[in-house]
Nucleic acid binder design. Structure first.
Lengths: 151, 151
DNA sequence: CGATCAGGTTTTTAATTGAAACCAGTTTAG
DNA sequence: CTAAACTGGTTTCAATTAAAAACCTGATCG
């Protein structure tokens, strides 16, 4: 599944894409945020071939994004639930969603929107911010190669 | 390139992944945020086959993420620069990066980090927020199907 | 003028995807 | 209690896609 070129890459973006960056993984995770847990539910929702779904779920479990556990309804079947690591993908999915909402829909076109349960209002657009809270664009940042844990 | 199943999907996440959700597109865009502009620079940075790079750049230009224009150094060659639509992918790339930094590196391992030019400090972790500014987790939100522009 | 470089395209081969059939264990309906 | 249907897959095979390498055209450099 992983390519040797990106696997040991020191760029975190590359590593992330290697783990969850294929066509279906992020769709599966999106569904999981919508409380889908069982194989057949994922398959119905996504329309993906069962062999592909099986291989993706297996990979996502191996990498620690999902846990497999007995179904909560007491049946003998399994369910796939996001680990904390998986839940923390939420900002990625929301930023993908917001970009699509803004640039990929015609005015008047039907779409699904993400609402805050408490207020019923749409969530805020996500922004990159500096330590002091200022909004940062791509030109306000730079990458630096660094060893973690250095003094 | 696009699948019929996701193309007319009303889920913005699905549409976004259809446009920029393949193995290389987001890597190309990440490089663009790092001021890479020319074909040969992308190729050298990514190590991707030239035909794949060419097809991705072409698709990304068609979809309005990149503009092609004459090289800024006055030579007869081209360069690929992000449109506004492309620049707005920044939050997606940063959230991918931050997830990878947090979950995909061992302590002490070399990585690249993203710093604010002004302060030299790392950027803040991205968060999903409600209209009132409260941090929202996946359980605090729900999706709703809606027609845009309704009164 | 010849060599080299930028920016691809074409060809060929390898890997991945997806559809469909199949299958074992589980649950439900009668 | 038994047959039918459902769950969660695996296997097989055809078709699509990706990747490597060779090739090509025009631009630039020496």
């Amino acid at each position: 599944m992983e390519t040797a070129s990106t696997q040991n890459n020191e760029c975190p973006v590359a590593r992330t894409l290697d783990v969850i960056g294929d066509r279906w993984s992020l769709m599966i995770i999106r569904d999981a945020f919508d409380d889908i847990r069982r194989f057949s539910e994922f398959q119905k929702s996504l329309g993906v071939a069962k062999n592909i779904l099986a291989s993706r779920l297996k990979a996502l479990v191996e990498v620690g994004v999902f846990d497999v556990r007995p179904a909560s309804d007491g049946s003998a079947y399994k369910e796939y639930v996001l680990t904390e690591k998986g839940q923390e993908i939420f900002p990625v999915v929301v930023s993908l969603r917001q970009w699509g909402e803004r640039f990929l829909f015609e005015p008047g076109e039907t779409r699904s929107v993400l609402l805050d349960n408490a207020s019923g209002q749409a969530v805020m657009p996500m922004e990159v911010r500096s330590a002091s809270g200022a909004k940062l664009g791509p030109l306000d940042c730079h990458r630096l190669r660094r060893v973690d844990g250095e003094s």
